[in-house]
Design a protein around this nucleic acid. Structure first.
Lengths: 374, 374
DNA sequence: ACACTTTGTGCGACAGGCGAACAAAGAGAG
DNA sequence: CTCTCTTTGTTCGCCTGTCGCACAAAGTGT
């Protein structure tokens, strides 16, 4: 773009208060440039990560810095009403902690553990969370907070988060694979979330990986989800426990976090299970790579804290000497955003909408004055 | 768009000669409208379908009507030089048959049985067709014909063809699955061919479907290609022949076309093989549906002439009672374009480029005169 | 002190698109 | 046949966004 056009745009941005001049920069042989800064704290966004068994809330600034964080274990699937009221409590608490008044709140984004149909983006899939049928979370929050509310699948928002703020900042195509209660993938194509026709794209959990794993609820045999969900891994640890008397894994109350910790410490049984998971995951990842051929795959979710312990057997199983260019050339990395990734992605959904349509930003008073004088 | 803007655009189009007024239409209570027609025969395009074992050439008009068709069996993989000279002969013959002089030729599109890297779109993958290494088909044809030449993977162009002229005309997302010497898929996302980072997207042939099928050249175990390629199916017919003494399949020289014919006639062995293929294909298709969630899947290639004989077991294996919305809601159909689909897709590649940038259309004399007077 | 570079802005030009007004051509009622 | 209303196509002025150019402001280096 030409310098004159940029001048005009910058003038507009200065008026909105989103951008401000931050002083003079270093000269490169001539007049010193006026540096511009995005005013991160001009507005705030709420991101909600609603999992199957927890709710987390982040209040972020416009650069996705987390200003307040609330998280609580809760059986979301079984008690929708309770979940909604808990969510409200967490949001209110976080807003107060971050000292955000309603005028500065741009909107609320929610990540949900269910596909979201683009044609009807305010309700959850009754197949994945039956008790949430007929409950309109988006409308509910809009009525309470009177700001725009957006909702999408958690893996999609994890992918968005990695692309904007995490490991996927340098590419237009990216796959994010989330290993949690179930396995799901979020796909970024041409810089945008790809949802497919009915919003179900990325359901990597239903790729067949092991015919001996029995039948899946989806009707197919040997789905990845039958081998990879956190509950399955804990179950498997329990089943194999007798063969590993020396293992330090607890016989009861085992969680995936503990499993990962013990694997890092060197426990043989824990490592066996993590490595096994990596090998199973490889089959699904191989299918995804061959179909999608993304530049980068980011792994997120509780299990991926095992890092190379999970990725090494996965990469080995993918076959480093494979002639398949898609497998060979893809970078496989673990998430850099950790537990906050999904909620920040939910907030990013709102940020992106507002950047596309700046009228969504709440207008401060001085801008209204400026508008009147023209 | 407003009526005035359309007037301006139509005036431009009339000048190019691509569109002409075709008389008055029926009145709907007022002045009769001036009907416009695309001048299909204003220009012509050449589409080349270069398979592993054949070359076909179509000369099409601007509406993808085939004006001339040439096809010949040839071992393309083993004799690149011979293939190029054969290709030239077929193109010249077809151009003469359709009475197209060079001035009316927009360009030449080529479909190749190899991934094409978007960053280097003029050469083939040495992994798929080793002998074509260092041979630049695009440059070769540009030097001979002095027109723009485009190249892409055959499955991608099959998908493009189905979306523009065939079964996929009504959707922005579409998957085209080609069952030929190997299995490949072409993906249309947001109305455009999706190639992935290195042009290898859609390699459905390397999805794992059967661990007992042995190791694939790609390094993984049990790839779909090990069960589905035309050569594999013929081999399997041969292996099972002793168990089916009543079968009318020939013991030697069996082709897939013959196999499909016999299956349609009711031969048990032939049906068994086609149905088996459908069930294996289902596993790959299920993975693709869950990842991509397209509105429609179009099946093409020689095997798909078996129609419902292939699709019925495939659909059954996908599980009609499946709760997975992507599998349930996708329409699965066979190609309506048949053998000409790929070559027409290759021509469409050029057509699309020219419609995006109309200066690519060869300029007739009267337009140049008009340009001078302004 | 002077020439030269870099940066920011004001102004006229221009393309693309839009709505309003108008002209052309027809339908239908009386 | 006349008059009114509808539909279609075009012309004109307006607005927006972008660009190139000229010019001013503010540096660097000899």
């Amino acid at each position: 773009m030409s310098r004159s056009s940029i001048s005009a745009i910058v003038a507009d941005l200065l008026e909105t208060g989103l951008v401000s001049e931050t002083g003079a920069g270093d000269s490169s042989g001539g007049r010193r440039p006026i540096m511009l800064g995005f005013d991160d704290d001009a507005h705030a966004i709420v991101g909600v990560d609603m999992g199957a068994t927890h709710i987390a809330v982040a209040v972020t600034d416009l650069r996705s810095q987390v200003k307040a964080w609330r998280s609580k274990i809760f059986d979301v699937r079984e008690d929708p009403e309770g979940a909604l009221s808990l969510m409200r409590g967490l949001i209110d608490g976080a807003l107060i902690e971050a000292s955000i008044d309603r005028e500065r709140l741009v909107g609320i984004g929610i990540a949900v553990p269910s596909p979201v149909n683009p044609e009807n983006p305010t309700v959850l899939s009754p197949l994945f969370v039956p008790k949430w049928k007929d409950l309109n979370i988006v409308e509910h929050l809009e009525n309470i907070y009177r700001v725009p509310v957006g909702m999408d699948n958690d893996a999609n928002l994890g992918a968005l988060s990695e692309q904007w703020w995490g490991a996927g900042r340098d590419g237009r195509d990216l796959a994010y694979i989330k290993v949690a209660t179930a396995v799901g993938a979020g796909l970024i194509i041409n810089g945008d979330i790809y949802r497919g026709t009915t919003g179900i794209a990325g359901e990597i959990g239903h790729i067949p990986v092991d015919p001996s794993a029995g039948e899946c609820v989806c009707g197919l045999t040997g789905c990845l989800n039958l081998r990879m969900g956190t509950e399955k891994l804990v179950q498997r640890a329990h089943d194999l426990r007798p063969e590993h008397p020396k293992s330090t894994l607890p016989r009861r109350g085992l969680t995936v976090s503990r499993l990962v910790e013990e694997a890092c410490e060197g426990d043989r049984l824990a490592r066996l299970i993590v490595e096994d998971a990596g090998r199973h995951l490889a089959i699904g990842v191989a299918a995804m790579l061959n179909l999608f051929n993304p530049a980068k795959v980011v792994f997120g979710g509780s299990l991926t804290r095992a890092g190379e312990l999970l990725l090494r057997p996965l990469k080995d199983a993918l076959g480093e000497r494979s002639p398949s260019a898609s497998v060979k050339q893809s970078q496989l990395v673990t998430s850099t955003l950790g537990i906050e990734g999904t909620a920040r992605g939910a907030a990013t959904l709102i940020l992106r909408a507002a950047l596309d349509d700046p009228t969504l930003f709440p207008t401060p008073l001085d801008v209204e004055v400026a508008a009147h004088t023209t």
